[in-house]
Structures are given as structure tokens and as C-alpha cells.
């Protein structure tokens, strides 16, 4: 019994702290260098997900700390930013779910855009329409529309359209099948089209 307790408390003492510290310092330096190199992408995704600077900083830092804890599992030479997005999207979705528990709607159920309950919800929660038209800042308007997307949809559209990741990479980050990415992305864009209607229709691409 006493032996068990002492090994619980003192077990690690066999590893001298002096041997452990430089290794940690080394890891930290290597990690911070990667963070520094990718900080603008990391912050951009955090900001578009979180919707404001306060929450973006929190989200980015939380994801960075989590990534540091898991840094042993990062393979040098692979995309550090995508690896971190993977952690960040998990952190983000967990945070949102903890904060406001929304009624469960099957987000991935196949449904026509016209009958989509989520689009209807979006339309209803649009808020004061006058406020919308008065918003001179297009960035703010787009961000507000992004903010109203369910978190899985927002994450998909941020990764695909803002970060420019291909479908399979988005699927990898979100840990879901590519088919799910396709449908989430499509419906996210449809919702944004509904929400941003009056602000659309400038430059047109070709078919």
C-alpha cells in the first residue's frame, strides 16, 4: 500500500527534471517556429469560425495549446496548418456545443433546398432587416451570415472557400466522409446565398 502510494507520488522522480527540461524547451521552440510560420492562416480560420477578435484569439490559442500537447503525433514535413485546423475545428465545435445546446436536427439528411428547415431557421433569425441593409461593411455582413450557419456547415465553408482546401482535405480535417463535405458545403453556400441575397450579384464568373 505504502509502496503503491509512493510510486504514485515519486514515480517520476527517477526521471531527473534536468533531463526533461531541455527536451521540452526544444520541443517548444520547434513548435513555436511552426506556429509563427502559419500564424496568419491559423488566425484567419479562427476568426472566421469565431466571428470576432476576442473569441478568435481564444480559439486560436486553445487550439495551439492542444496541438502542443499532441505535438509528438505531428509528422514533420506534413501540413502543419491543416493538422492544426483539425484540432481547431474540434475545439471550436466542442466549445459551441457546450455554450449553446441546439435542438438536434439531422444536419446531413438529404433534403431539397426549398424545404430545408435550416434555411428557414436562418431566414427567421436574420434579425432586423434594416440593420442588414444599413451594414455598410460587407465583411461584417458576410461574417454575420457565416455566424448564423450551424457550426459544421460554417467549418466546411471556411475551410473550402476561405482556406481553399479541396474536398478530401476538408473531409480529413472534419473527420467525415467526402460525401458529407459535399452536401454540407453545398447547403452552407445555399444558406449564405439566401442570407446575402441583396449583397450578391456583382462580378459573375462564366459557366
Amino acid at each position: 500500500m505504502a509502496e503503491a502510494v509512493s510510486s504514485l507520488v515519486l514515480g517520476g522522480m527517477t526521471v531527473s527534471p534536468d533531463a526533461a527540461e531541455p527536451r521540452t524547451a526544444h520541443r517548444l521552440a520547434a513548435f513555436e517556429e511552426l506556429v509563427l510560420r502559419h500564424q496568419s492562416q491559423i488566425y484567419r480560420v479562427a476568426y472566421r469560425l469565431a466571428g470576432n477578435h476576442d473569441d478568435a484569439e481564444d480559439l486560436a490559442q486553445e487550439a495551439i495549446i492542444e496541438a502542443f500537447r499532441a505535438f509528438d503525433r505531428y509528422q514533420p514535413g506534413t501540413y502543419f496548418d491543416r493538422w492544426l485546423f483539425r484540432i481547431m475545428s474540434r475545439t471550436y465545435i466542442d466549445t459551441v456545443r457546450r455554450r449553446n445546446r441546439r435542438p438536434t436536427v439531422s444536419l446531413d439528411a438529404p433534403m431539397g433546398p426549398d424545404r430545408d428547415p435550416l434555411v428557414t431557421v436562418m431566414g427567421d433569425s436574420k434579425g432586423d432587416p434594416q440593420q442588414m441593409t444599413e451594414a455598410v461593411d460587407l465583411d461584417g455582413t458576410v461574417q454575420a451570415a457565416l455566424d448564423r450557419l450551424p457550426e459544421e456547415f460554417r467549418t466546411a465553408v471556411v475551410l473550402a472557400d476561405i482556406e481553399g482546401l479541396p474536398y478530401d482535405e476538408v473531409a480529413n480535417v472534419l473527420r467525415c466522409p467526402v460525401g458529407t463535405v459535399r452536401s454540407r458545403l453545398h447547403r452552407a453556400r445555399q444558406m449564405l446565398r439566401e442570407a446575402l441575397g441583396p449583397h450578391l450579384g456583382g462580378r459573375r464568373g462564366s459557366r
Partner: peptide, 12 residues
């Protein structure tokens, strides 16, 4: 249009 709008967002 939606995609162009998103792509054109300034980097925060």
C-alpha cells in the same frame, strides 16, 4: 457569387 464573396474577404 457567394464563393467569390468569401474568397474576397480581407485577411483579419
Amino acid at each position: 457569387d457567394v464563393q467569390q464573396l468569401l474568397r474576397g474577404l480581407p485577411a483579419p
